[in-house]
Simulated scan of single mutants.
Amino acid sequence: MEEKTVNKTNSNSYTFIFAIVMVIVVGVVLAFAATSLQPRQYENMRQEKMQNILATVGVETDRAGAEALFNENIKEQIVLDNTGKVKEGVNAFDVDLAKELKRSPEEQNFPLYIAEVEGDTYYIVPLRGAGLWNAIFGYIALKDDVNTVKGVVFDHLGETPGLGAEITQEWFRERFTDEKIFNDNGELIGVSVVKGGSTSKDDNKVDAISGATITGDGVSDMISERLRHYLPYFKSKTDIKVANN
């Protein structure tokens, strides 16, 4: 009687064991890669954050040169409480607004960057709010009158390409330059993104992105909401000409 030979490599157990081994190997490789790359990823994030802060005051740089220019142009980094007082022992650069916004305003940290560029002083406020699909965020720089916008930078986590995602584009950001955050009555209202907004720099409005109403409303809301927390600090600075509110 002829004996049948069983090929072990075709058995179910061999396939199962091979799959387990491959999963373990791939998992170990990916974990090692993630751990190895983590310091570099963190450094890239730091440099990109510096680039964005500098961009609001017109200082453009690549990642490699970001830290040197940041240290040269950012003269102070402070953290405020909700009453405008400077908090000690808190690093402004390390404040995570995503976490801060989950706390009450009385408990939040409010980072502020003070820049000096070619003899002019600027106050840079980090922003964060809600867009259509996810968070939107960025920075707004005010001139030394704490009323006129020097520049802005916006980014997002999931806005629609060609619509809400256009907030990152330079042509949209340029609309905010020289806009005012106080109205004629001295009330802090920020800058509103509205459909059909004029080109006037005194109406606290910029033209919206067509088809991105909710994202535009999110930009408007986060600017006014974030800036309002800094008003006590600005008022406390006797050398700053802040409007009555």
Rank of each mutant, 00 (worst) to 15 (best):
V79W: 00
F176M: 07
F32L: 15
P161E: 07
N134R: 11
D184A: 12
Y230K: 02
V125D: 02
D94Y: 09
A31T: 15
M50T: 03
D184I: 08
E48W: 08
K180H: 09
V79F: 01
F137L: 10
R128A: 14
T199F: 09
I74Y: 03
L101E: 14
K102G: 12
D120I: 11
V191M: 04
N73V: 06
D94E: 15
F234C: 00
G218Q: 04
I167N: 08
E107I: 08
E225H: 14
D239G: 10
I167A: 03
T15I: 15
R46Y: 09
R128L: 13
G158M: 05
S11A: 08
N10D: 15
R226C: 06
W171Q: 06
F18Q: 12
L163H: 06
Y14L: 09
F172Q: 03
A98E: 15
I240E: 01
S104M: 10
A165T: 01
M1N: 10
Q108T: 06
D62Q: 09
E100V: 10
Q108S: 07
A34H: 14
N183G: 04
T61G: 02
V26N: 11
Q47P: 05
K85V: 14
I24E: 10
Y123E: 02
V25F: 13
T9I: 11
E118W: 07
K237Y: 06
D81C: 02
H229P: 05
E179H: 09
K180G: 00
E225V: 10
T213G: 08
T9Y: 15
N7W: 05
R46E: 14
T199R: 12
M45P: 11
E76F: 04
T160L: 07
L163I: 09
F18R: 15
I140H: 00
K4G: 09
T15K: 14
P39G: 12
D203V: 01
E2W: 10
R228V: 11
G119M: 07
Q47K: 15
P126V: 11
P111V: 09
G190T: 00
K201T: 13
W171V: 06
Y123G: 02
E187L: 07
V219T: 07
D94C: 02
K143Q: 13
E116D: 06
K87M: 14
K235L: 04
E166H: 09
I20R: 06
S36D: 12
V149M: 05
L69T: 04
K49M: 07
D155V: 04
P161G: 03
Y14C: 06
R226N: 13
L30P: 12
E2N: 14
R226T: 09
I214N: 05
L112P: 01
Q41M: 13
E170M: 08
F176H: 00
D94G: 07
K4H: 14
G211L: 04
M50V: 02
K150T: 09
L231M: 14
K180C: 04
Y123M: 08
G218H: 04
I114E: 01
V117E: 04
F70D: 01
D178G: 04
L97E: 11
E67K: 03
Q169R: 11
E2M: 12
N183Y: 03
T168G: 12
V194Y: 07
N44A: 15
G84C: 06
